[in-house]
Design a protein around this nucleic acid. Structure first.
Length: 500
RNA sequence: GUCCCCAUCGUCCAGAGGCCCAGGACGUGGCCCUUUCAAGGCCAAAACACGGGUUCGAAUCCCGUUGGGGACGCCA
């Protein structure tokens, strides 16, 4: 593939790329997280780099193994494989923060020793009280540094009394700046950053400490994460500086919003990636859709396979504004990807659904899989979701399809029509070849002889043969069904007495 | 309230000073095809938030206003 000049552009340096997706397992993989993971993965793959999965489960209360499994399932379904992380391991194992606690404590104390952090004896209750008071005045509360001013003696006394102490980072005066790959340079005045806690009084690290320690140890070159972390980033940059390290490159990707422009949540419908699996979406459609939600290769191309996305991906192509999740467009991508999938592959994708509806036979009617594939070929441009494909294929896989009452009422209630179906069956019996053109020719002839409009007999035949008022082109359906089944079904319809 | 981010059709994007009285896609409307429903084809309506600059020239650069979003936890 010709990658064009961008393949040699600024972001294509020879230096190795290491990125990570670091979810906290407090919920399943939602579309926002999935897109963040996707951007990281695409970036790693584009540059032949390493994609790390790290589980940020320092909040034991809210984390669970079931959630880890859910996230892993979601990533696997999307095809986002990781080079280091749970299951696969790697040189920086373990990849669960709950198993790395000692490192964070050690680093926190090291910062205290170097004067970049200090012990804080303030109780959460006191702080909360002060915060509430400030809020009552409509002011923002930032930590008043009470414990920074503590005398050595007072601190010793508190320690002797066994007072609980947290560790706070000592934010220096000045400004903190970083270059964001999607937003450009961002500057924060340090006066707006409070002395944040890095190690809780129960010796648990906070997010700020653990991400930075891990990103350093795991040698991350780029941190691609949600926009909501922009305001945390100066704290992280300060920590890198305190640790004497150069921060990685940051890229903050905009959020995904619901139709009401609020951050996407359960209120807006399905947000779990696996829910989309259940609903009949193809992972490649989901990937295509998510990739283009807030990112563009620049130009008019939209329908892209995953390998094309990899070839085209750049962090600079991510747009700065939030994006509204558009379910109709997801449907369209899915329909397009379904239509492009080879029938044999499509059959594999719906096997589970067919089994669930007891439509799967190891020996399929008509003999072999090749026949089912022909049916799928006919049906696939008609559906948006895999479930619909299963619906459409049902009449082909059962002995006799069930009649849809409304369809019968509409097209089979006339006794003359039903009798004509019998005549048609007689004509179809010995018909050779039984293909679309000849079946159509015969049917129109029979309709004319019976004084019926072609359409009327076509509709009746459709209901007789599929049980429904809607299907793919009737004569294609007839040809695929074959004369034996068609004749049987026509005769059943001829003899059918509608309940009135 | 403070800080930060963002601002092109209803939605997602293209556009990196003249190629733009703004292009593509989804959705919407119409037409064609047609045995139904889709798919497909063609056509249409639909946007540079506002105000100031800078410039020969601004959707593109700067400032402000307004609007939207995010963050202000011993959550992540």
């Amino acid at each position: 593939m010709d990658l064009g000049p961008s393949a040699f552009g600024s972001s294509d340096n020879r230096e190795m790329v290491r990125v990570r997706f670091a979810p906290s397992p407090t919920g399943y993989l939602h579309v926002g997280g999935a897109r963040t993971a996707l951007f990281n993965w695409l970036f790693a793959r584009r540059h032949g780099g390493t994609f790390v999965l790290r589980i940020e489960d320092t909040d034991a209360e809210r984390s669970s193994w079931a959630m880890v499994a859910g996230i892993v399932d979601g990533l696997r379904w999307l095809g986002l494989d990781w080079d280091e992380g749970p299951d696969v391991g790697g040189p920086h194992a373990p990849y669960f923060q709950s198993e790395r606690l000692d490192r964070y404590r050690e680093k926190a104390h090291a910062l205290v020793r170097k004067g970049h952090a200090y012990y804080c004896y303030c109780s959460p209750e006191d702080l909360q009280r002060k915060r509430t008071v400030a809020e009552g005045r409509g002011e923002a509360w930032t930590y008043d540094r009470a414990c920074l001013k503590l005398s050595r003696e007072d601190a010793a006394r508190l320690d002797a009394a066994g007072a609980a102490r947290a560790i706070r980072f000592n934010v220096p005066a000045g400004q903190t700046r970083f270059a964001d790959l999607v937003h450009g340079p961002i500057v924060f005045d340090n006066s707006n950053i409070e002395d944040f806690v890095i190690l809780r009084s129960d010796a648990q690290p906070t997010y700020h400490l653990s991400v930075v320690v891990d990103d350093i140890e795991m040698e991350m070159t780029h941190v691609v994460r949600g926009d909501d972390h922009i305001s945390n980033t100066p704290k992280h940059v300060l920590l890198y500086q305190a640790f004497g390290r150069t921060p990685p490159q940051f890229a903050h990707v905009p959020l995904i919003l619901g139709p009401d422009k609020k951050r996407l949540s359960k209120r807006h419908g399905a947000t779990s990636v696996m829910e989309y699996h259940r609903l009949g979406f193809l992972p490649e459609a989901m990937v295509n859709f998510l990739a283009l939600l807030g990112w563009s290769p620049g130009g008019d191309r939209e329908l892209l396979e995953t390998d094309e996305l990899i070839a085209l991906f750049t962090l600079e192509g991510i747009s700065g504004g939030n994006a509204v999740f558009n379910p109709e467009k997801l449907d369209w991508f899915n329909q397009q990807h379904i239509a492009r999938l080879p029938a044999a592959e499509l059959l594999r994708r719906i096997e589970g659904r067919l089994r669930a509806r007891e439509l799967w036979r190891d020996s399929l009617p008509g003999g072999e899989a090749a026949w089912v594939e022909k049916v799928l070929e006919l049906l696939k441009p008609r559906v948006k979701k895999l479930d619909q494909l299963v619906d459409e294929i049902e009449p082909f896989l059962v002995d006799l399809p069930q009649f849809d009452p409304a369809a019968v009422q509409k097209h089979l209630s006339d006794v003359d029509v039903r009798n004509t179906l019998g005549i048609l069956a007689d004509r179809y019996g010995p018909l050779v070849p039984f293909d679309a053109a000849t079946t159509e020719h015969v049917l129109r002839g029979v309709a004319q002889d019976a004084g019926l409009k072609g359409a009327a007999l076509i509709h009746a035949t459709r209901v007789a043969v599929t049980g429904r008022a809607v299907s793919a082109g009737l004569f294609d359906v007839l040809a695929l069904l074959g004369s034996t089944r068609v004749v049987n079904r026509l005769r059943r319809a001829r003899d059918y007495t509608p309940v009135s």
